[in-house]
Amino acid sequence: MTTQPHENTLEIRQLNATLPNGMRLLRDVSLTLEPGEVRALVGESGAGKSMIGRAVLGILPSAVVHSSGDILLEGQSLNAMRPKTRRSIVAKMSALIPQDPLTALNPVRKIGPQITDPLVRIHRWSRDRALKRALELLERVHIRNPERVMNSYPHELSGGMRQRILIAAAFAPSPRLIVADEPTTALDVTVQKQILKLIRELQRETGTAVLFVTHDMGVVAKISQKVTVLFAGRVLEDAPTEAIFNDAAHLYTRGLIAATPTPNATAEPFRPVPQDLIAQLQRDTQAEDVRFYQGGRK
């Protein structure tokens, strides 16, 4: 595989995803991710941020109908590929840091093979190389006594440890792209910070591009260079993180930032995103749906 450094790691063009009942999960979503860049996908529940990650990785729920659009990994169009080729290309170039570390490890298998199996069987590394790499990364994510952990079962480890293991597993094959699907949501607050720091450090060391799905504007500020704000499967705003926080173009984005709770409670009371703004956005979306279906049908 030849990699051209000037090419975008990920490019999503006009991606639409629809349920059989006509409900639209993604509406003409386009975005790009440059090598080594971290882009945050933010929005409330159901905004489609996880769907984008799943679409890239090819794990959309089976009910979802792809209506149009394309996804390019380093310039290669995934839609043009046969399913088997696509699975193999995606697996070799990308990885997932899942949301819930408690359910993302197989409870009846030891940690070691869960990290090394893909390296040996998919990436065709030698067993020794895979083992060395796994140990190296476990140490990197501050797992003490990595040999013993490799020989443990998931239930013997804490949630924070399991998430660190999953981060190690994601970075192990040196992927070009990592999708981090709310990787700190299921963890308690003290652990969240460490995990975030770890992902940021590893990302910088390896130069991996990261698509970071989150609903937490506080996390966005810490980790990303670019932000995509989503509402009801639609991109509302796409801008550098600085610009988003200093001068957001969209009222909804400002609402999201204002709604982020701050630790110094003395400052100002918690302000949720205004209801009338959300209602307005929903009306816009519905109107757009009407146009979409009238235009799309004939």
Partner: peptide, 10 residues
């Protein structure tokens, strides 16, 4: 989730 992760891994 762990079976989904296995699919992502190829």
């Amino acid at each position: 989730d762990y079976t989904t992760l296995a699919r992502v891994r190829g």
